[in-house]
Nucleic acid binder design. Structure first.
Lengths: 196, 196
DNA sequence: TGCATTTTAGATCGATCGTTCTAATATTCC
DNA sequence: GGAATATTAGAACGATCGATCTAAAATGCA
């Protein structure tokens, strides 16, 4: 019927992720976005709606690619206790390799857009709940096969791991020091080994 | 020699704290600030320099009043293990009372202004290090008097507590649920009790 | 009281914000 | 090939951004 889209929508979305990730929502202008995405403002609005809708899609894509991929891979390939350890180890390496100090887009947007947009807030909360659910599945499986302590309920241990992960992401943006990050993960993992 | 300042500088700074706390740096305009502070734009620039300098002073004031006050009070009035527990308990209550979901201004600005302003970044990192030092003093004192486990080095335990605190602050903004926050603190405190 | 100095209020600066509009271009179906 | 339609590029919109300027008002010291 009509002229097909000339640019690669997925690649453009990846570029938008980079923008929002590096600068945050407010500090990223639509002109920044269009330039990095290699399209014009009109095409951006035509293809993605408005800035807010693009942000939402960028977050979705980021979470699916970074957390989703890692959770699936580790949960399928490693025993539960090792999957948790590997999850944190990968996060530390990612954080230390992050020269731009971008941190985690999900954590960033959890803070930046908390009060403003209720719908986005709910979406972010749901994504954080998915991370919690990953930890919980690992802890429960580890408790069943005896590799993780049952001194604390799986529910609470998963919540602790979640908060450690979020805290690590915050800390890494401010002080990306290996000793600091590895030091805090050590006692968290030791807690899982506690006899009970 | 000249006309004295007509407005209360401390009160104006408190109002600026409220603005930056609720909306973040980028989303707060100088006009917002001036209106909430009860002064005009010219007075704001005259008394505080520019928006960035005001932000910096607001963060300093916030940290001195919220964390500084609490750390001094708890460290002086409670045994170390109890001081840590009380610190987290107060933080949970504050988070659940926070209807505007403002979270912690220090954590917020650790993420929002991480890449932009190196000087501010260093200042925020130093303030976070002060929180770490508070935890470390408590853990070391508790290990000396036998109320805190020595199975993990005080250094690592303090880092874990720091990351749990930061994570709790992030989580509370997204999901301010008592069961969630209390659940994650429970295993963190249990780790301190571990025999060793 | 009068001079020096600072703070005030409000207009105003150029730049940039998110968004939309106007044409021109390119494509598919008939 | 021609009509219909979507996408393109770029100008343009009003609003708002951080910051400054101009006077007028108000104070402390002589």
């Amino acid at each position: 019927m009509a002229r097909p889209r000339q640019f690669d929508e997925a690649a453009a979305l990846d570029a938008a992720v980079q923008c929002f990730w590096a600068q945050g929502y407010e500090a990223t202008s639509v002109r920044d976005l269009a330039a990095r995405m290699g399209i014009t403002g009109a095409s951006l609005y035509n293809a993605f709606g408005d800035k807010r809708a693009l942000y939402r899609r960028a977050i979705d894509r980021y979470v699916a690619q970074s957390f989703g991929e890692r959770a699936r891979r580790l949960e399928a390939g490693l025993p539960p206790r090792a999957a948790i350890a590997a999850f944190f180890a990968e996060m530390i390496e990612r954080s230390l390799d992050d020269r731009e100090r971008k941190g985690c887009l999900l954590v960033n947007s959890a803070l930046e857009s908390a009060p403003a947009d209720p719908e986005l807030r709910r979406a972010v909360a749901a994504m954080i709940a998915e991370i919690e659910a990953f930890f919980r599945r690992c802890v429960e499986a580890g408790q069943r096969d005896g590799t993780i302590s049952t001194a604390q309920p799986a529910e609470d241990l998963a919540r602790l791991l979640l908060s450690v992960q979020l805290g690590l992401r915050v800390l890494a943006r401010s002080r990306p020091e290996r000793a600091l990050l590895e030091g805090l993960v050590r006692p968290a993992l030791a807690l899982l080994d506690r006899p009970g």
